[in-house]
Each structure stands twice: as structure tokens, then as C-alpha cells.
């Protein structure tokens, strides 16, 4: 699935300082019945966001009139649980391009990279700093610079570098996915398959 290229993102952020946010919260299973990729953003954090009668829950951050932006800042171990890529779609379709956490679950991180959401892992201290700054002032701007692999709190200039493999970085910068790459080496794959033990 094609996605928008990622270069430098400057945006306010939405804070969600909860640990172990699992994929069943990001997108509950009952919304996985689609056969097309549409409407997932509407159901992002559905049960935290809406009451059973579909009225918004006022105390949930996505319903807050003050917080907004393209960066979601989550607590430790963000995205644990299922392999549903729908969770990453929901994050992207809602309008987030970047998720920041001090620790990501593996499959979720991988799914994000495949759909154009940049997972930025920061130190627990820096995550705390971001939470404090954003909660104190929801207009706090954050710059996520993919070419330089840095994340900066613009008001104070405090920054940290983050890891991403050169291959994935290149993909994100250009809006490519792995499928394009694999198609280009199909012959090599077929030759390889001949000698497999199973």
C-alpha cells in the first residue's frame, strides 16, 4: 500500500501516558471485519474514545479540544498484542505520521514501518520530558527529522537521536515498501527455492 513520503515533520503532539497500550485498544477486534482498508481512523482507540452509546468520552485525549497534531506519544511497550496491521492503519488513517514511545512491541513497530508511520523510540527520560512539556503546554512543537534521525523539543532545543535501519529509512524517505524490493529479486528467490530442504 502506498503511503506519503516522510522527511521532516514538525507538529504538536497528543500525549497518551499509559503503559502496555495493546492492539485490542488501538483497534478492537470487532472492527477487523473490513475487506478493504477504509474507516479505520474513525475507530482508533474506539472503546477508550466512545461510550457504548457512541457519545465521545470527554476525558480521553483524542476528544480533548486542546491536544492535536500528527505525533502520538505513548507509554512504554506501545502496541503489544496482536499482529493486526489494522492497528497501524488506524494510527495512520487517523492522521498520525509518527508514534513516539520509550519502547515498542516488535510486530507493531514493523507494521508501522510498512504502512508509513514512523516509530520513534526515545529514552525513558526523554519520553518523560516530552510528556511534561506537552501536558504543560499543548502547543509544544516537536520536530521529527528522519534524514538526521533526531527528535527535538523545539521550545528548548532538547533533542535525542533515534535508531532506524538504513534500508527502512530509505523506504520511508521515498514512500517505497518491501514489496517493490521483493518483486525486483523474484528470479533470485525462485532459484533459491530449488535447493531448500522442505
Amino acid at each position: 500500500m502506498a503511503y506519503d513520503k516522510f522527511n521532516i515533520l514538525t507538529s504538536t503532539a497528543v500525549p497518551l501516558p499509559i503503559e502496555n497500550v495493546d492492539t485490542d485498544q488501538i483497534i478492537p477486534a470487532r472492527f477487523l471485519k473490513a475487506t478493504e482498508r477504509v474507516g479505520f481512523g474513525d475507530n482508533l482507540f474506539r472503546d477508550w474514545r466512545y461510550n457504548p452509546d457512541n457519545t465521545p468520552k470527554k476525558d480521553f485525549v483524542l476528544n480533548s479540544p486542546v491536544y492535536g497534531g500528527k505525533i502520538l506519544v505513548g507509554g512504554k511497550n506501545f502496541g503489544s498484542g496482536s499482529s493486526r496491521e489494522h492497528a497501524a492503519w488506524a494510527v495512520y488513517d487517523y492522521g498520525f505520521r509518527c508514534v513516539v514511545s520509550s519502547f515498542f512491541a516488535d510486530i507493531f513497530r514493523n507494521n508501522c514501518l510498512n504502512v508509513g508511520v514512523l516509530p520513534v523510540q526515545v529514552s525513558p527520560e526523554f519520553a518523560e520530558k516530552i510528556f511534561t512539556a506537552v501536558i504543560a503546554d499543548p502547543k509544544t512543537e516537536i520536530e521529527v527529522n528522519l534524514p538526521d534521525q533526531t527528535i527535538t523539543l523545539l521550545a528548548t532545543g532538547e533533542k535525542e537521536t533515534f535508531e532506524i535501519s538504513p534500508y527502512k529509512k530509505d523506504n520511508m524517505l521515498n514512500g517505497f515498501d518491501d514489496l517493490d524490493y521483493l518483486q525486483s529479486i523474484k528470479k533470485e528467490i525462485q532459484e533459491f527455492a530449488v535447493n531448500l530442504p522442505l
Binding site: N110, V115, Y167, D178, L182, I189, A193
Partner: peptide, 19 residues
């Protein structure tokens, strides 16, 4: 377990890309 993009990769090339 893999995500849907990877399901598409395996269907089309029988491979996925993982560190």
C-alpha cells in the same frame, strides 16, 4: 505472526524482509 503487508509479500514472492 506478520502484518497484512507482509501477507501480500509472501503471496507475491514467498519471502518477507526481517532483521
Amino acid at each position: 505472526g506478520i502484518g497484512t503487508s507482509e501477507v501480500e509479500m509472501v503471496l507475491s514472492s514467498q519471502c518477507i524482509m526481517q532483521p
